[in-house]
Simulated scan of single mutants.
Amino acid sequence: MAQLVRDLMTADPVMLPPDTPVREAAKAMRDREIGDVLVVDGDRLCGIVTDRDLVVRALADRDDLADCYVRDVCSDQVVTADLTETVDTAIARMRENAVRRIPVVDGGRPVGVLSLGDAAVERDLDSVLGQISAAPGNN
């Protein structure tokens, strides 16, 4: 039987409104030891911000982050996976769109995040990505 996204995803994602300062997003990533936060307006997914987005779209371009918000740095063309679709389908979509993480939705409402690391830990722990993803954080 095919494995479903809901079986591998990280549930309870950090979700922040678009007007959240990027510094708060960075702190949330640090505190939860994650590399992304979802940007939501109510229950509607508006975007995703990754640790790379913070570096490339915020830190590299600004001397002062006081007026920089997640809406300014998020990817707003979000590729998603449905809670009940197969992991293979979601991974194929990630490959097609060159993304490492994909928000998981249930009826359009965000409920989790599936990362390539999640899949590697479950499916190929002996791979380099599986070993790195399974290792404790270094912060």
Rank of each mutant, 00 (worst) to 15 (best):
37 V>C: 01
128 V>I: 14
12 D>F: 02
102 I>S: 03
2 A>M: 13
32 R>H: 14
46 C>G: 03
11 A>G: 05
47 G>R: 01
38 L>A: 02
118 D>R: 09
10 T>F: 08
92 A>K: 15
46 C>D: 13
4 L>S: 08
97 N>F: 10
9 M>H: 07
101 R>S: 04
104 V>N: 12
11 A>N: 09
56 V>W: 00
60 A>K: 07
127 S>T: 10
139 N>F: 13
59 L>Y: 12
103 P>S: 08
101 R>H: 11
39 V>A: 05
62 R>Y: 15
33 E>R: 15
100 R>M: 10
91 I>L: 15
91 I>N: 00
70 V>L: 01
88 D>A: 15
61 D>V: 12
28 A>C: 04
34 I>H: 00
64 D>Q: 08
28 A>Q: 11
42 G>P: 10
68 C>G: 00
135 A>E: 03
88 D>E: 15
58 A>D: 03
28 A>M: 10
99 V>K: 07
28 A>I: 02
87 V>C: 02
120 A>L: 07
38 L>F: 03
36 D>L: 02
52 R>K: 14
90 A>I: 04
120 A>E: 06
77 Q>L: 11
88 D>C: 03
36 D>N: 15
64 D>K: 04
126 D>Q: 12
72 D>C: 10
70 V>C: 07
66 A>Y: 09
136 P>K: 11
93 R>C: 02
70 V>M: 07
115 S>R: 05
15 M>Q: 13
73 V>P: 12
33 E>L: 08
130 G>F: 05
120 A>H: 11
60 A>F: 04
47 G>Y: 06
66 A>D: 15
66 A>P: 02
60 A>M: 05
119 A>S: 01
41 D>K: 09
136 P>Y: 09
56 V>T: 15
60 A>W: 09
109 R>A: 03
71 R>D: 10
55 V>E: 00
23 R>W: 10
115 S>M: 05
131 Q>Y: 04
125 L>H: 13
104 V>E: 08
130 G>S: 10
122 E>L: 00
50 T>A: 07
67 D>A: 13
92 A>Y: 11
5 V>E: 01
19 D>L: 03
33 E>W: 01
120 A>D: 05
64 D>R: 11
112 G>S: 09
58 A>G: 04
32 R>L: 04
39 V>Q: 03
82 D>I: 00
104 V>L: 09
95 R>N: 10
10 T>M: 06
100 R>W: 12
21 P>A: 06
27 K>W: 13
56 V>C: 01
91 I>P: 00
24 E>Q: 15
86 T>H: 01
25 A>I: 11
131 Q>D: 03
115 S>I: 12
40 V>F: 08
18 P>A: 11
48 I>S: 05
64 D>C: 03
124 D>K: 10
81 A>R: 07
119 A>K: 01
78 V>Q: 08
82 D>P: 00
119 A>G: 00
121 V>F: 07
107 G>C: 03
76 D>K: 09
34 I>A: 00
25 A>W: 05
89 T>M: 02
104 V>R: 12
74 C>N: 04
108 G>L: 05
118 D>N: 14
114 L>S: 08
94 M>K: 11
